[in-house]
């Protein structure tokens, strides 16, 4: 993987997430998709195993630094989910967009629930209604999953610049 180009792509994604994400959010709470997680899932699904794990961990760290979550929580969650995707990806039929959509939805939901749990444990924020937060997390996961095919299309267009293989890699 070409790490310099990866950092550039990461920077652009972060700028979009921080600057524009809430403006175009959906609903009164301005729920926005998680572009960093979307990039992580696509890289874990398509990229070389070992490098994709590190790239996903870096994406999680960047999300930690750009949010109020305890440092390390998103990095750990993204790393763990990337490890799971890399271990299981050869079982999935990767050419159909539904696969990526379902995978992205599950990863987004699980990552946010994990971080919400960590935030509650460390008393970073008071959560009165876990049901409401879970609904928002699910809605955000649906938005992120809906963008997954487009994210994959973009990564495929940039596969040479990122140093990724054109076709999916099977096996570890």
């Amino acid at each position: 993987m070409r790490w310099f180009n990866f950092v550039l792509l990461l920077f652009v994604t972060l700028v979009l997430q921080l600057g524009v994400g809430r403006l175009f959010g959906v609903g009164p709470q301005r729920v926005m998709p998680d572009l960093l997680l979307l990039l992580a899932v696509v890289l874990a699904f398509r990229g070389p195993a070992d490098q994709a794990l590190i790239a996903c961990w870096i994406l999680g760290l960047v999300k930690d630094l750009s949010s109020q979550a305890p440092l390390g929580s998103y990095a750990f969650a993204f790393g763990l989910l990337a490890w799971a995707i890399v271990r299981l990806r050869e079982m999935f039929y990767g050419e159909h967009p539904i696969t990526l959509i379902v995978l992205t939805f599950l990863c987004s939901f699980l990552a946010e629930i994990f971080v919400l749990f960590i935030c509650s444990l460390k008393k970073v924020m008071e959560v009165e209604s876990y049901t409401s937060f879970s609904l928002v997390i699910m809605f955000s996961a649906m938005l992120t999953a809906g963008l997954a095919p487009y994210g994959q299309w973009l990564i495929l267009k940039l596969h040479r610049q990122l140093g990724l293989p054109r076709r999916r890699i099977y096996g570890r």
Binding site: Q17, G21, K63, S67, Q68, M125, S140
Partner: peptide, 14 residues
């Protein structure tokens, strides 16, 4: 305001 928190759980601006 230069941006918002990157997660949906918090209402924080930068």
């Amino acid at each position: 305001i230069t941006g918002s928190d990157s997660s949906n759980q918090r209402e924080v601006k930068f």
